[in-house]
Amino acid sequence: MNTDGAPRLGWWQQTWRLAAAAALSVPVWLYVGVLLHGQDAGPGAWFRIGDPLVALGCLAALLWRRRFPLAVALTVAIASTMSTLATGAALVALGSISTRRRPVEIGAVALAYVTASQFAGGVYPLQNPPGMFWLQLALPALTAGIAVAAGMAVGARRVEVRSLRDRAESAEREQTARAAQARVLERNRIAREMHDVLAHRISLVAMQAGVLDHRGDLGAEENRLLVRGIAEGSHQALEELRDVLGVLRADPGHPEPPQPSLDRVPDLVADARASGLDATLTTTVTGTPADAVGRTCYRVVQEGLTNAARHAPGAPVRITLAGAAGEGLGVDVRNDPATERTTHRPPASGFGLLGLAERVGLAGGTLHHRPTPDNGYVLTARLPWPNPTHGKSP
């Protein structure tokens, strides 16, 4: 592209335009030659040599019309006074300056072209019949108008094409940005799911391994149950991790694995209890909330059980769920101080409660967590549960 927004032309395009300019001038030059032959003096040396040389110089000047559009157009228009073969070059220069769609420049070049055509009679003093003055003025004005109209049409087309190209590039950039943002959001979602799955399962496995290592008074049957719990917990962790990672490799039409919901909280507590955690669940929930609310409630309970197993081994954990449509859903997970010591605690990431707070916030709820005066810990969440019939007319 040039500085004025016009596309750069290849050598064959330049050649085609110069050939068109020369071909446009040949009939005019031959017509003038025929008129000069009809007079006594006949065509002189200037007509046969000077006129073509000036036209050649004008055609050469057109090669720089993209870089110096106004200067080249004015020069060629003025030089056309001395050469009839330069008429085509002058019209091409006028059309080229018209593509810029600047009225002052177009008017200056058009005026120079029409004025130069009137002074051409001094170079070739042809004997014209009376009343031909208006024809000599109207014909150059008409050709100049055609060149200006054609040039402005080309300029408008260039502006439209450039606008469409810019819009296409902008749309492509926006699409790329949206795709990148979607990838980031998907990675964050998968990372959050992986944390929720692995942290809970590994915490229960670590708790069982700690009991197995710390308690030396266990019988063979109790040891066997703990070892089986460790094996089953590890297997479940791998299965759930495989389900999460399967989303990355799935086809676009492949369904995602089922997401946890409120009705799976009892299974979650029972699973934790089977792994050795002293967990009890009390629920007074009436009705079924939206999937997003139920899934968030499940993750709150899961995080509470994970933290209790990691930081308070052996402590009783009490989970309370209460709520109904129009009242909201309350989640309360409390654990007492630890009653056992273990050296097999999994490393804490430090992002569990942060990610949970973000998840609860996205669901429109609030999350609070704090130590209790008796060195226990409490995790509470309040989730919105609007009444589906609210605002509907009877």
Rank of each mutant, 00 (worst) to 15 (best):
H311V: 05
V54A: 07
W12P: 02
A23K: 01
D166F: 11
G350W: 10
K392S: 14
M132T: 15
L245K: 03
V76S: 12
I146V: 10
W29T: 00
G233S: 12
G151Q: 06
I97D: 04
D213E: 13
R382D: 15
W11Q: 14
P125Q: 01
G376A: 02
L139R: 13
T286Q: 13
M1P: 09
G50M: 01
P346L: 02
P289Y: 03
H369C: 07
T320K: 06
P316Y: 02
L36Y: 06
L226D: 09
W12I: 10
L262N: 03
P257W: 01
G121K: 01
T75G: 15
A279H: 00
R178D: 12
G328A: 09
C297K: 05
A86Q: 04
R341I: 13
R102A: 08
A325P: 14
M82T: 12
R8C: 08
H369Y: 14
T280F: 09
T3W: 14
V269N: 08
S275D: 07
T372S: 14
L262S: 14
N223W: 06
H344V: 09
G155Y: 11
A79S: 13
L137A: 07
L238G: 15
T342P: 01
L367S: 03
A77E: 00
P347M: 07
R345W: 00
P266N: 14
A110S: 13
L85N: 00
G219C: 05
H369N: 12
T372H: 08
S96R: 05
A45Y: 09
L281R: 11
S98H: 04
T143M: 15
A292P: 06
L225Q: 14
A250V: 01
Q13R: 15
R295C: 10
W134H: 11
P252A: 06
Q208G: 09
R310H: 08
D278H: 12
G57W: 01
P129E: 01
R8K: 14
E358S: 08
L53Y: 04
P266L: 13
A86G: 11
T99H: 06
V32W: 00
G287K: 09
L18M: 12
A6I: 12
V317H: 12
T115C: 10
L353Y: 07
T306M: 12
V54Q: 00
L225I: 10
T389P: 03
Q302K: 05
A90H: 00
G33E: 00
D336P: 11
Y124E: 01
H390G: 11
P266G: 13
M132R: 10
D4P: 05
A206Y: 11
L30S: 03
A144L: 00
A220C: 06
L74H: 02
Y31K: 02
L245D: 10
L63V: 14
R334C: 13
Q302P: 09
P373G: 02
L135D: 02
A231C: 11
R249A: 08
A22I: 03
G361L: 04
A144Y: 01
W11C: 08
E160V: 09
A90M: 01
L281Y: 02
Q259Y: 05
Q118Y: 10
H195R: 13
G314N: 02
P43V: 02
R249K: 11
P347F: 10
T284N: 07
V197N: 14
P27I: 11
D217V: 04
R242H: 07
L354P: 05
D196Y: 06
